[in-house]
Every structure is written in structure tokens, then in C-alpha cells.
Design a protein around this nucleic acid. Sequence first.
DNA 1: TTGTAGGCGTTATCAT
DNA 2: ATGATAACGCCTACAA
Lengths: 338, 338
Amino acid sequence: MNIGEIARRSGVSRSTVSYALSGKRSVSEATRQRIQSVIDELGYRPNAAARALKEGRTRTLGLVVPPVRDRLTFMQLDFVASVMAAADRADLDVLLSPAADDHDRSFERIVGGRRVDGVILMEVRLKDPRVERLRDMGLPFVTIGRTTRPQDTCWVDVDYASLAERCTNHLVDLGHRHLALVNRSAELVASGYGPAHRAREGFNEAVARRGVEGFEFCCADNAAAGESCVQEILRTHPEVTAAVTVNEAALPGVQRALDRAGLEIPARFSVAGVAARYWAEQFHPELTAADVPAADMGAAAVEFLIGRIAEPDSPPPHHLFTPPISLRNSTGPAPTPR
Amino acid sequence: MNIGEIARRSGVSRSTVSYALSGKRSVSEATRQRIQSVIDELGYRPNAAARALKEGRTRTLGLVVPPVRDRLTFMQLDFVASVMAAADRADLDVLLSPAADDHDRSFERIVGGRRVDGVILMEVRLKDPRVERLRDMGLPFVTIGRTTRPQDTCWVDVDYASLAERCTNHLVDLGHRHLALVNRSAELVASGYGPAHRAREGFNEAVARRGVEGFEFCCADNAAAGESCVQEILRTHPEVTAAVTVNEAALPGVQRALDRAGLEIPARFSVAGVAARYWAEQFHPELTAADVPAADMGAAAVEFLIGRIAEPDSPPPHHLFTPPISLRNSTGPAPTPR
DNA sequence: TTGTAGGCGTTATCAT
DNA sequence: ATGATAACGCCTACAA
């Protein structure tokens, strides 16, 4: 079924059908209705490929997600969901691309084949070849997280440095003098993953300024790793009474390790951090944490991207989210040594 | 950058470039190399829309996911991830459509606009208008879950009836005489959601056959609902000593309610069910459960769909997954009444 | 108010 | 081994 067939059956030309549909020039009410009834009867829909070819745009957004080896974190999933929802509101489709770098076939197809009008790039690293590629292609894009040259790209990000710092300060204020940072995995740190680097900086900064002791531990994004990470903390640094965590996927393991060690939260051990609200509330007692506003970030990313598609040469906007730390029940005064 | 430009710079015709790329007719090694070097230099990629228009296929799969109000369950997420991975392996792109019924604009765009070669439909209901629509369109599709007329569609599903039955039998074998079923939400049941209906059937069947008492409780897909659901079970039926659950998202709440009621698992209360392995292992003690093989199901769905795209008139295959129940530590002998 | 015709970038048929 | 050309379905400038 194509526009020619509709035109034939309506007894008009193809252009009239096209205009009746787009409204870009006036069509007499009588013919408009006749055309519409034929369309309804046959269930005609314009072919998206033909339209894309002619118009030079696809009305589709690319969403580049980390390929699934370790499961996506809730934060990432919330983000995907909110991008979907925001795109849907704007009548845009979302094409998924599981790609960690610019050589992944999927990335190549979507970007090289001009399958999308713009791209949202999740989990960018400080130096990210995909960003270079998109820039070279002249394809509008928004990154989640910033690269090392944030001023000339469009991004949304979470201010991990300041959040880690504030969590640390909160714990020091409560009297804790020996703190651990449960960071993301060593691989992520090694690959130049911004949040991990900035969480470290913020933690180290706060620890130094307040004159207390801080130990950083890298931890893979899963519960088992969280459990063994906390076990290691307790073994190697028994004096530690509080932890800052930016690793939400490790939280259930953190919980379990503390439970098993008989360290009641927050009486004997305090935990504060950054997490999707879901995980914070899943923690027991509920976690004092900065709730990453993944939904807002997804909506902002889509909004930015739509703007850049419309005006590619406008200065790229960005937004650094610094959500407040919700005081819940996982932090308390440092236990008095006995 | 288009094929004409490559042809011009290589000093050949467009068709030669096309054939050099596709290999569908022989091209002399010399010209092939010349063309290739021009392509490499300019970074040319065939335009996907033009190709789709000409070839009549998009090399894209549509994945229809439930729109995000309640968060997607892990099972669903695993499924999305595995579809992505399987599609990627087959060099197919995935277009996302958040749609609960056939009138959702996103569904309409993707299906009506022929944006995809085939569709994977998640969370189908027993009677699902999207299925009718796809059938009418003649677009190949695979459903996750079966409708009431499973023989003439292509699907993969989990055998909830038999799994619920087997969990129930296991608990009865252990001496439990008063059991509860923690089912999915009342809305899902009302809307004709297959797994919820079939879990109920399997549970009722087993309970009747074994001559024990069974109570069904509907429960929304989140932890809070799980907690209040268990509280209600304990309040209204204090004689219940075991629960069968098909609601993985409720598990953390189930756990919390039992903990708070002081009912040790499995000494005082047993739980068995169906869940993504992740949740089963997250439970404490680990949950005796049938682990839904979401990854296998996603891969199978993609495989089926590719087959149907290739041969739309072949008899539609389907596969009912009946994963074994992994005996873990959440089930034990019924407590002796005191 | 409506029709005609060209072109978007590809692939493939028919020539050479 | 290669080239010219028509078609895929749509949109829109130009003409009437």
C-alpha cells in the first residue's frame, strides 16, 4: 500500500494525498474527506524509509548502551526507561545500540548508516572514541557523563565529586575518623570512567581536608563483589566505622556482609552514598544517599538532543545534576571504641 | 557522502561500487581495491533509508516493551538485554516501542510505517489487540507469552502452570498443609495476563489434588506490595506455613515482612517460586525457585523471528520453557504446631 | 484548488 | 568486467 494507490482510489494525484496528510497546503474539505476515508479503509501509513530518504531525517534517536556483560545497573535502566518515555512524548523512536566503542558493528551501522537524527551516549569515558566519531560525523549527540573536554560537547552528568565529598563530610561530622570508599570496579577506573574517578577525588579531597583516614576499595557492580569488598574492608582495616558507596549494585552485598559480621547499621557501622532511590529504599535500614535523578536526566538528555538536532550550531548545553542527600537511617554517630 | 560520489572519485559507475560492496557480481581486483581505498578515505557508508526503500526490508527488529509505569521486572530486563545481544549477533538493529496496546503512537509508527522487518512482543495478554494488528499487517512476529489461540502464532513462554504446581507439590511433600500463592497484581489478572492466570491454575490444581488448603493473594510488582501482602497473609490466615510466589519484584518485601514477623526461613516459614535467578540468589536464605531462563528465551525469540522473516508461511514454531526448580535453602519441613 | 515531475541513495536488470 | 537506467515511496517546487 502506497501513496499512489491511495491517490488512484481517491481520484486525485499523489501530491494531493501528500498535502492532505501534511496540511502543508490547503485541500478542499470534500477531497480531504474522500482521501481520508480511503486511507482509513485501507489502513495506509506512509513508508518510513521513503520519507526518511526524501526528508533526510529519520525521526529516530539512537541510544548507545553498554553491552550487557555485567547486568545494567538500576540507574542505567531507569535512564533507558526515561529516555524511551521522553522520546515517546516527542513522537520519536529509539534505536538501541549495544556498543562500548566506535568499532562495534552496531554503532557503526547506526551512526555510519545515518539511521538516526541524533545519539544519546550512555556511560561515556573521560576519553571516548565514540565521541570523536560522532563529532567527526557531524551527528548531534548528548553524552551521559562528561569527557575531559566538557565545554564543547552537550552532556548531562551527576556531580559525583561533590556528592562523595558531601557524604564523607556528613560521616566525619558524625564522628567517624576511619572511612572506606566503595568505588566502582578497577576495570572501570582503569578505562577512565568519570564517575569512579570523580568519586575518588571527592572522597580524597574531603578526607584530606578533614584530617581523617580514608581507604578506597574498588568493587565490581554486583552483590557478591560488594560482600567480599566489605569483608576485605573489615579484615584489613578493622578500625573503619563508615563507608561511602557509589556502587549501588554492590549494596545488597554490603548489607549482607555487615549483617553477617554482626555490625548493626547505623549503631556499629554507617553507610552513605549515591544510588538510585530504589536501591536506597531497598537497603535496610534505608540508605542515606543522594538519589540519582535518572528520570530527569533522561528527559533532559532527550530535550537537549532535540534542541541540537534543530540547531546543530548553537552552543552545546549541559547540566550537572547535584541531587540533595536524603537523610535516611543508615548513618549515625561513630560508635565509641571499647 | 553517497555512492555516486564514490563512483565518481573511483572513476567507475555507481553499480560497480554497489557490486564491489555486495560481492553479488565479480569486480576486477584492481577496481575493487581502488573503490575500497576511496571508501576508506571518505568513510562512506550506504544510507540505510535508501537501502531499506529499495530492498523492502530494514534489517531492524521491533521490540515492544510494556510502557514504564511500574518498573520493568528483572525478568523483563534480562529479556530485553538478551534480545539486544541476539539481534546484535545477527547484525540486526533493535527499535524500541513502549506500547501496551495497538493504539499507542509508537506501536503505530513502527508497525504501520513498516519500520521493522519483524516484531517481538513482550508481555502479551491472553487476548491482545497488538497480536491481531500484527497478524492483519502480515508482519512477522513472536510473542513472549501465549494468547488463547497459541497454535497459530509464534511464541516462547514459561510454563507457569506446571511450575506453580511443582512448587506447591514440593511444599506439600514437606508437610505444609496451608499454603498461600503470591500472585501478580489484580490489574494484571484482570487484564488477562497469562502467567498470572496460569500460575493460579497450577496452584489451585495442585492444592485440590493434594487435599490441602490454598489461598491466592494478588500483589503488585514491588517490594512494598510484597511486604503488605505477606502481612495480610499472616493476619488473615495465621495457619499458613508456606508460600508459592511468582512475583519476583515482591520478593524483597516478602523477605522483610517475614523477618519482621520473626518467622525464620525455612524453619518457621517456607517460600518457593518462580523468579529470575538474580532475585532467587538475592533472597536470604537463597530461594528455592525455578529460574526463568530469560536469556535463552530472548535468544530463542530472535531466532524464531529471523526464521519467520525468512519464511513467513512456514508453520509458526514455539517453545514452552519449563526450567527445573533449583533446590536452595528457603524451603523446609512444615513446623510442628505448638 | 489541484496536477506534473524530479530527486532523495540504493540495488538490480538489461545492455555492452 | 562494467555502465546506463529504472524503480523503491515519498515530498515539494513549479505549473496550471
